[in-house]
Design a protein around this nucleic acid. Structure first.
Lengths: 165, 165
DNA sequence: GACGTGTGCTTCGAACTCGAAGCACTGGAT
DNA sequence: ATCCAGTGCTTCGAGTTCGAAGCACACGTC
């Protein structure tokens, strides 16, 4: 019988730390650029990108958005409020489910997104992909995908068990 | 002449998003475990781990710590204060440089670190490495290392230009 | 050895973040 | 039809985060 107690060897620890450090540094670099280019926080950019680029309709429900960007629901309410105040998105009650709120990107939102995107891409390109060959990038994609899928299968934040009353 | 304007293709975009999502989800999972096991935030754990595991002496200067965990200096002052109040680290003026502050992990800090580490490792192991083979892990290590080194070479946070007076 | 720029850390205020609790609607069971 | 547990979102309070400004020391030049 093998050791049930999982442990991490040096390589694994290295990967873990490197992953977190890379993500942290990248996020930082990106955050700075976004702040300068469009006065957006990273989260706000993520929300706009998700609505403007990933979603065919430009709309999504709050919870899906929150899970998509790995963010707390209450935090999303706050950020969505800011974006709405800035006229970049609109919030409307969902058609089918009266509880739900649908967030939709506005034309102004799309315009701002288009404005900051080149610089954003530039930073990511330089920081993340410069040291990687084409083949490296593809290898990385193949390695990260299963991990992401695996992690997603864990119950998402929104499914956090509620306190028993 | 190739296009000077960097752009990201679908694969690169996927890698970028996957990377950030994986890091975010992993951080979350780990954060929960740490909170339950030892009432530590992720940052606090990182600080203790860096002092207790990476540093031979168990000490490091504030700025190095801040850069190491990708964190603002002022934030580090705050967290170091909390850790000190909890008796997990000590802060003493540096011997050679009167401006510097050396942070050192205490025995209590080491004890707590040892206590939460197994659970931490367990979470990382399950969330991050379960879908990866041994070879995958090594490949990932080889891919992330150059990226991390590349990013580190950019001026660190602490070197942020100060406002001209 | 006095000056002045640079660096290390802290303080400060404002903004952000989170989970818990609360409110509103849904959908299945009775 | 009524209940009630489940879900979607917001509100709330407490804690955290950041950059800018401030203070103290270091190290170069003169």
């Amino acid at each position: 019988m093998t050791d049930r107690r999982p442990s991490l060897d040096a390589v694994q620890l290295g990967v873990y730390f490197a992953l977190m450090e890379v993500a942290g540094l990248l996020r930082h670099a990106v955050e700075q650029q976004l702040r300068e280019a469009g006065d957006l926080s990273y989260v706000q950019f993520q929300l706009l990108a998700r609505l403007g680029l990933d979603s065919p309709t430009g709309s999504e429900r709050m919870t899906d958005l929150a899970d998509g960007v790995v963010y707390s629901r209450s935090g999303l309410t706050y950020q969505a409020g800011l974006l709405e105040k800035a006229g970049l998105v609109t919030r409307t009650p969902s058609a089918d489910d009266e509880r739900g709120v649908t967030v939709t990107i506005t034309d102004a939102g799309r315009a701002l997104l288009a404005e900051v995107l080149p610089g954003h891409v530039e930073v990511v390109s330089r920081q993340l992909f410069q040291p990687l060959t084409r083949a490296d990038t593809e290898a990385l994609a193949d390695l990260l995908s299963p991990v992401r899928d695996h992690m997603r299968s864990s119950p998402p934040r929104s499914a956090a068990p509620r306190r028993r009353r």
